[in-house]
């Protein structure tokens, strides 16, 4: 049987459509993906992200992660990768600096058990799965609504900073391309927050909207843009690899960056028809790559996506076609993010 979050029964009561996501029963939509997407872009929405995991870590974490933690202040958090020796991406994660040598690392759901094994073999780490849950509140009104409804003063909370309250930890982060927060607390406290937010007009959003929001904002997803066969070099995210510090996989990463065999590009399709994960990218008759994510995105009203292609076809404005099995869809390489908040 799949795992369930503390909020599972609430999703079922709200008549959410439930799906399997990395071994978890999660809501994919409540009243409709587009309505939920638009709610986050224009006002506020909340997400059950309890399936994600976090580790409490003590010691010198820098050699294990790609991001530079030496320059990270206590009270801040930073995005980066867990890489293996070949620079393959084990996971993408965010490290919160809780104290001088105390950290919280937040990781994806399906990769969490392997991540924990990898990390705990190398440093003192505690899996917070049994004690902690998380929700995301996202949208231009997210901070104001969390303050109004939960009574948390967020006025001094800057981007990629966190703040501890008596019953929770709040960071100004998210995965939607909008302003917003992630709230970490005990399972019981998270369930109470969810009920209070809902009772005060913050509506829930599912993984469907989370996916269109992150795609539109140009944010990669583990299992799609990232996996063990890819490194930050092919994925175009070298900015999250420290230049100053050494870390597992760094030597291999620098080698791979010199001789790219494929590279992630953002593309836009001519029509509203979507390309989908796994479809082949072609130039004439030759196969030059494969799609990793693709969807119609509501705010930009266009079908966009990501693909790994031969590095010779990554120049902005270059065109290729995507074979969906019945037709060739015309695509143009464009800049990511597809959407930037005003």
């Amino acid at each position: 049987m799949n795992a369930r979050t503390i909020l599972f029964e609430k999703h079922v009561l709200a008549k959410a459509r439930m799906v399997d996501f990395g071994g978890w029963d999660m809501p994919v939509q409540y009243d409709g993906i587009i309505a939920e997407h638009n709610r986050v872009r224009t006002h506020v929405g909340m997400f059950d992200t309890c399936h994600m995991d976090a580790f409490l870590i003590k010691g010198d974490l820098n050699p294990i992660v790609s991001q530079d933690l030496k320059t990270l202040a206590v009270g801040a958090c930073r995005y980066g990768f867990l890489l293996n020796e070949e620079a393959g991406i084990l996971d993408d994660q965010i490290c919160y600096r809780l104290g001088e040598s105390e950290w919280m690392m937040v990781v994806n759901a399906s990769t969490a058990p392997a991540d924990f094994a990898w990390v705990s073999q190398r440093i003192e780490a505690q899996d917070l799965r049994s004690t902690q849950s998380k929700i995301d509140v996202q949208g231009p009104d997210a901070l104001a609504e969390v303050t109004r409804i939960l009574g948390l003063d967020l006025s001094d909370l800057k981007r990629f900073r966190w703040k501890r309250f008596s019953n929770c930890l709040v960071s100004r982060t998210g995965y939607t391309g909008e302003d917003g927060v992630e709230i970490y607390a005990t399972h019981e406290a998270i369930a109470t927050f969810w009920d209070k937010l809902l009772a005060n007009g913050v509506l829930p959003c599912g993984l469907g909207a989370r996916d269109t929001l992150r795609l539109e904002a140009g944010l990669p997803l583990y299992g799609h843009e990232f996996d063990l066969t890819k490194s930050p070099a092919e994925a175009n995210v070298m900015r999250y690899a420290s230049k100053a510090e050494s870390f597992i996989g760094k030597d291999a990463l620098l080698e791979r960056a010199k001789n790219l065999k494929e590279q992630l590009v953002a593309f836009k399709l001519e029509g509203r028809q979507s390309a989908r994960n796994g479809q082949v990218v072609k130039q004439g008759d030759s196969v030059i790559g494969v799609v990793t994510s693709g969807s119609y995105c509501p705010t930009i009203a266009a079908a966009v996506g990501f693909a790994y292609v031969d590095p010779r076809h990554t120049v902005l404005g270059s065109t290729f076609s995507i074979d969906n099995g019945r037709a060739l869809l015309a695509a143009t390489v464009v800049e990511s993010p597809f959407y930037r908040k005003k």
């Binding site: 509203r272 989908r276 969906n324 019945r326």
Partner: peptide, 30 residues
């Protein structure tokens, strides 16, 4: 779920029962 694209057959096309006549795409699937 939310339909985002529809592909329809050309006028004049002769269809047999069971032939694919088009595609309806939602945000998540075709």
């Amino acid at each position: 779920g939310d339909i985002t694209f529809v592909e329809l057959p050309p006028v004049g096309k002769v269809l047999k029962a069971g032939d694919a006549l088009g595609v309806v795409e939602s945000v998540k699937a075709a």
